[in-house]
Structure formats: C-alpha cells, structure tokens
C-alpha cells in the first residue's frame, strides 16, 4: 500500500441549528500519508483539523471528496480494527476503572481475555497509570484522561494511530513520555497522524506536516521542504570574540550579536561562510557551532495562517 491515508478534495459544510446558515467547516483539503510516517496536522483553532479527523474516523460524512484509510473507507470494520483513535479532550465513562474501560474496548476488538489482560497491564505501565488502577475515571485529572485515552487508542496494537491533540493537558514529563511513546511507535513501523498546537513537538517528531487554515491546505511536505534547507545564511556561534567591529567588516557577515557572556552569534551569507570561518580560526577564536539559518515552524505557521490568532506557540 503506497499511502495509509488519502484525503482528496474533502469538503464539509454544516448548517447552524437555529438559522440554518451554511458554514463551510472545511473547504478543500487534500493530503496523503505514507506508511511508517509521523505526520503532523497543523492549523489554528477553527481551521478544520478536528472536522477532517472526524471524517477520517467515520464520525461525519464528507459533503464532497473522498477519504481512504488503509485502503478502505472510514468506518469499515476491516479498517477500524487496524486503527487507534484519540479524540480531542477525551471523556470516558465516569464510573469505570481504567482496566474496565480497556477491557470493554478489548472485547469490541474480540481480543482474547488472556491477551487482553497482558496488553492492559502493559499499556497502563506505558502511559503511567499503574497506580491509578483502582480509581474510577471520574476522579482522573485531565492529564490522566489523556493518558488513558492514549492507552485505549493502542489496545488493538493498531497500524495507524490518529491522535487529536495528544499532548494537550499533559505536564512536561507527561509530554516527554508521550513523545517518546510516539517515537517508539514509529520505530515499530506504525504510522502516526496527529494534530498539535505544540509546534516544538511537531518539529521534533514529524516526518511530514500539512498546515491548514480556514478549511484550506496552506502547505504540505517534509519539514526540510517547508522550512527549507536554509535561508541562504549560516549561523555561527563563536567564543572569545572581543573585536566585534573587525568581524562586522568581514565580507558576508550580516550581523553580530551577543548571546551569552562569552558567546557571539554571527549570521553569515552561505557564499562567504567558509572565508569567514577561516578568518575566525586564524584570529584564534573558538567556533562553538555552525548551522543553517532556518525559519522556524512557528514563523512558517504564522505566515501561512495569515498571522492567525489562535496558535499557542509553545516553542
């Protein structure tokens, strides 16, 4: 199978309950996800991310366009048995305990009891809820609900994991654990599709991303493609620089600024970068690092979404 997810020309229109006014939640969204990828789905609030993900999971029908998941249609038994899904801000049954909830879902997947028991123990350990086994879900914090939500999404050992804001509500340790979990899922050959407001995590984790805004795709590709291999400039961090004025006069140096008590940051044009480096070394200065000057995902996102107001730029 070439693509795990194929969304082509997806549109979704609603009518408001009171006035029957037509609302175009998604105007035209297309993208494809390859097997084994971690694919990031970005967009400000109201961009159409959750609507698109609901359509991918068969919770809503497209007004037009086609969606193929694992070669089939959303909602099909054969498809859904290979998918794990975490909705945004998941909510579960108040009076159940975590293992009871996971047993319920395990039974839906017809997982034999002995396999289920082992898997539930493992999942509760992986998501850090071993100590909460005897608590009912109504006593769970938002972060704990997020964790049990991730556990239920993995109960069937799915090939494709679709997560709507999986890092929302988690503390920094929880976020790191989930990021590590997503990375380990990728290493197991699974495909992960997730939306997030936390751009640093998207940037760190994703092979490819799609950015949507106002129901339209604004950009799609690998981070390399979207952020560029560079802006035509290099960033050189250098230690021991005292004569700043002479460095500023070197050909190709665009700016010099202090970034610490001992380190200066130089932005240098690529074409002259080698000569500048040689000059710095000849002057006996310590080169801390040399890197491509890339635009950040946050900058790209803000530019693509028209400087949209909604993104929590948690970089």
């Amino acid at each position: 199978m070439e693509y795990i997810i194929e969304v082509e020309g997806f549109k979704k229109h609603f009518r408001t309950v009171m006035t029957q006014r037509k609302v175009e939640a998604v105007k035209d969204v297309s993208f494809k996800v390859k097997p084994g990828e971690i694919f990031g789905f970005l967009g400000p609030n109201g961009a159409g991310k959750t609507t698109t993900m609901k359509a991918m999971m068969g919770l809503i029908r497209p007004t037009s366009g086609t969606i193929r998941i694992l070669g089939g249609s959303p909602g099909q038994y054969a498809v859904m048995s290979r998918v794990g899904f975490l909705p945004e801000q998941p909510y579960f049954y108040d009076y159940l305990k975590p293992q009871e909830l996971l047993h319920t879902f395990g039974r839906i997947f017809s997982i034999p009891r002995s396999v289920r028991e082992k898997r539930i123990d493992e999942l509760l350990r992986v998501v850090g809820l071993e100590d909460a086994r005897n608590k009912t879900l109504r006593k769970f914090s938002k972060g704990m609900l997020q964790r049990i939500g991730i556990a239920q999404a993995l109960i069937n050992d799915p090939e494709l994991i679709v997560l709507d804001e999986p890092l929302s509500g988690l503390d920094p340790i929880g976020r790191k654990e989930v990021i590590d979990l997503l990375a380990s899922l990728k290493s197991q050959g699974k495909t992960v599709f997730f939306s997030s407001h936390i751009l640093s995590d998207i940037e760190r984790l994703c092979d490819r991303v799609v950015i949507i805004d106002k129901g339209l795709v604004k950009a799609e590709g690998t981070l390399e493609q979207l952020l560029g291999s560079g802006s035509g400039e290099k960033e050189i961090l250098v230690g021991g620089l005292k004569d700043v004025a002479s460095v500023e006069l070197l050909a190709g140096v665009k700016s010099v600024e202090v970034v610490g008590s001992l380190v200066h940051r130089l932005v240098v044009e690529n074409a002259q970068a080698d000569e500048v480096l040689m000059s710095l070394l000849k002057a006996g200065l310590h080169i801390v690092s040399v890197s491509d000057q890339r635009i950040s995902l946050e900058s790209l996102f803000i530019s693509q979404s028209g400087g949209g107001p909604a993104m929590e730029a948690t970089i």
């Binding site: 609901k54 999971m57 859904m80 048995s81 899904f85 909705p87 909510y91 879902f105 997947f109």
Partner: peptide
C-alpha cells in the same frame, strides 16, 4: 454530549 461516543464509534462496531 460528553463525546464518549467518539471513542466507541471509531472502534470496529456497527
């Protein structure tokens, strides 16, 4: 209302 169906209906169940 509480969106618990989002989790149930996305499982392989009619």
């Amino acid at each position: 209302d509480r969106k618990t169906f989002y989790v149930v209906l996305t499982k392989p169940i009619r």
